[in-house]
């Protein structure tokens, strides 16, 4: 398993040329990211996290390009936005005719914590073969009001309830990263997230 934290990496194209599990991670990244999958039996996982406050602006364009068959890729980006933060994600998956037996997926979930933040999502698919399983799902919304109220009835303040739920929201990404073998880096990321949230 190969792990790459590409948060500060300036490279726009990441080529996967060997089989096995490749994991990429980034936090609050803006820019174009292309993942070119050129090896059979490559399993690529891409995890992104965003926490936007004040007038933060994030524009990210990702691309999962399968040029060979027998490969899989999975993208998950979770973001939480406060104040007047802006987030725009364009995610493309391309599977040409020659790439048979490919499974590719893309998931994005965004939580809006204020009325003035704004999110734009464009999950695109360009599939030119039938021997494929491809899926994507994107959701954008607020924290579940019922769940917040429930926590408050248990004596937890509204702010603490929201922090609790947002940790649960990011936990989904950490849990998936753990499943593909990332362990020691996760604690550091959780700490970084906590700092960022309280700053």
């Amino acid at each position: 398993m190969q792990f790459h934290d590409i948060t500060t990496d300036k490279k726009k194209t990441h080529v996967v040329q060997t089989p096995g599990t490749h994991v990429f991670f980034f936090f609050n990244k803006t820019g174009d990211l292309s993942f070119d999958i050129e090896s059979k039996k490559a399993r690529v996982y891409i995890f992104g996290m965003y926490l936007g406050k004040k007038k933060a602006r994030f524009f990210v364009k990702t691309s999962q390009k399968h040029s060979v068959g027998d490969s899989t890729s999975s993208l998950l980006i979770n973001g939480v936005f406060f104040d007047e933060a802006v987030f725009a994600h364009e995610g493309l998956i391309t599977i040409p005719k020659e790439a048979k037996n490919v499974a590719a997926e893309q998931y994005g979930h965004n939580v809006l914590m204020s009325k003035k933040c704004s999110v734009e999502s464009k999950p695109f698919l360009e599939i030119d073969t039938h021997d494929v399983t491809c899926t994507h799902a994107v959701t954008t919304g607020t924290l579940n009001k019922e769940q917040v109220r429930y926590l408050m009835t248990r004596g937890i303040s509204k702010k603490k309830a929201q922090i609790l739920m947002l940790s649960g929201f990011f936990e989904e990404v950490f849990a998936k990263m753990h499943d593909v073998g990332i362990t020691k880096e996760i604690d550091a990321y959780k700490e970084k997230l906590r700092e960022y949230q309280t700053s």
């Binding site: 494929v132 399983t133 994507h136 959701t139």
Partner: peptide, 12 residues
């Protein structure tokens, strides 16, 4: 901010 959008797609 106070709205919900859900989208899902499959190709098979």
């Amino acid at each position: 901010g106070d709205s919900t959008v859900e989208h899902e797609a499959t190709v098979e």
